[in-house]
Design a protein around this nucleic acid. Sequence first.
DNA 1: TTGAAAGCGCTAACAC
DNA 2: GTGTTAGCGCTTTCAA
Lengths: 355, 355
Amino acid sequence: MAKSPVRRSAGLPATLLDVARHAGVDKSTASRALSNPGRVADKTAARVRKSAGALGYVSHGVARALTTRRTRTIGAVIPTLDNAIYAVSTHSMEGRLQRAGYMLFVASHEFDLDVEATLVEAMISRGVDGIALVGFEHRKKTFELLERARMPYVLTWNYRPGKLPCVGFDNREAGILIADYLVRLGHRNFGVIAGEIRGNDRAAARLAGIREALARARIPLPDTSVVQRPYSIEGGRDGFSILLGKQPKPTAILCGNDILAIGALHEARGRHIPVPDEVSITGFDDTPFAAVFEPSITTVHFPMAEVGVNAAIHLLNLLGVTDEVPERQLPLRLVVRDSTLQPRRLERTSAHSLA
Amino acid sequence: MAKSPVRRSAGLPATLLDVARHAGVDKSTASRALSNPGRVADKTAARVRKSAGALGYVSHGVARALTTRRTRTIGAVIPTLDNAIYAVSTHSMEGRLQRAGYMLFVASHEFDLDVEATLVEAMISRGVDGIALVGFEHRKKTFELLERARMPYVLTWNYRPGKLPCVGFDNREAGILIADYLVRLGHRNFGVIAGEIRGNDRAAARLAGIREALARARIPLPDTSVVQRPYSIEGGRDGFSILLGKQPKPTAILCGNDILAIGALHEARGRHIPVPDEVSITGFDDTPFAAVFEPSITTVHFPMAEVGVNAAIHLLNLLGVTDEVPERQLPLRLVVRDSTLQPRRLERTSAHSLA
DNA sequence: TTGAAAGCGCTAACAC
DNA sequence: GTGTTAGCGCTTTCAA
């Protein structure tokens, strides 16, 4: 007898060779029968399938990948899953990939771009067919790794016209959108509770957009009116307290996302500061909670799920797996709710002028 | 010249052979130098490392996995990432695995256990070293796949004494905890907005716990007082509307999670039904929002992050990567907040009896 | 301490 | 339509 007889007797998982022997064919035929049934006689294919079933054969993707140079695996390197926007976009991305037979690695770097580079290397090493990153800003090393490995990749949650492989929207525009709105309402004193900007070019761009809109309206935004806090309710609370201590008091506080806004709103409630009457508060993201919080939160709607789906499509397209063309620039929408209003002073002024 | 000279010239990623040639050693030496430096002369090791750096060598994990039969990869098959509890536990799990040099596959089955089985097979096929599943209930096929592959696995978000490889808590107890609390407050008419029970044994166990607690107190819970809705704000709103239409009106509504509770609370606010005065509402999970919602929500605290971390430890332990011993049974805690109160009728009754 | 050789399980030419 | 053969890139005995 040759080397290993039917090794399943040893309790080891069945290999293609076991299946082939069981079906009385060569392993190459078994291979074809399983993954390319068209190139094999129907009867043979059926017999092989039956043997595979009988032996509980599960293909050894690692070995297959070594020859095909495809793992049917994508890597998503994200800041964190502990924030709804990345959780939701990663979820929708995975859903689309799953439909295409791809599996997704997910790894978080907690906004540390050096860790990100390490993770990208770890994914390349594991043979992923493509990689999704968040944002435009990455270490030089990250890009080098990607290039050297000729790795298809897509940058998400941000968009810029051109041939950059990205799927998202213009974050600066999002900042302008909401700041403009407040300016038009008549606000002149602003505070900003930014999330962490380091390692987060989207947040930085949003802040830049806010600055730009205010500058155009000749409204100053001193650095002391911009506080950076972690994206948490606590962060929003802190930020609010600090900004409310400034003179002149801001009549509008822009928060880096809805969580921060909720924290700010909660702190305002605790201090019996009426929102929006005394101060307007805004968020970003438009998470489901923004609509049901009391007061409901004015925010910018980000198409979280669409980011993920289109990132998946972009990658699958690059891999030649789909002809579907990704929507690369996704729509942004200002959602006006109850947490914003004209500043009081303005009302008084109007009242005066009317009197 | 042998077969391929320095193939990097072809633009292909460097292989170990390229590194070896560049360093003037055999590839087996290069291999040792890179992954087992102790078994190689320091000078040689240094030279190999330098060559690897110069060529931008990234190890081909797929090929390595074929020989070592280890991919340093874990699979997490979860219901969805679109729910904070799974997002957070998956996040913490990934964090712990990352520290140990493991990478995580994440795949969602949207509460469909047949899909789950497919995903488990896909992961086994990709050679994961271990798998984390959510809950105890799985298709027979899922367990067969796991056994046949001799795959280390852990069941999360649930706990039962014994040697079952699980990390979580007793969901039935969670249900009892909160139902008992409401019973002690004096409630006698209950409504339940359960999340989807199918394919979710945790939710089913929670509901069973609620039923058990009520039965012990001889309080009926007709099937019409239990509605199943998707875990969403909308679901909570719907459920609330339906239950409020019943006679007798429930004085307490238990929701399957905080999201449903928020939906119910929002609907109550829309209908000007005061909570907790007219109806008490509870959740499960204790997500950060439960504390800041108005009214703040009475709920059961689930240690989401701990579930993930300990699942990771459990798996790493099974793989012999760590000696750390996982906490398998995690603590549960009733968190009483402002969305619950004694039922009004009881107040009146007491008033009467006092008069 | 290093090199030579075998082989992990699979696919893909290439013959027949 | 099916079998034969040669690797994919790495680790790992086994010798030297």
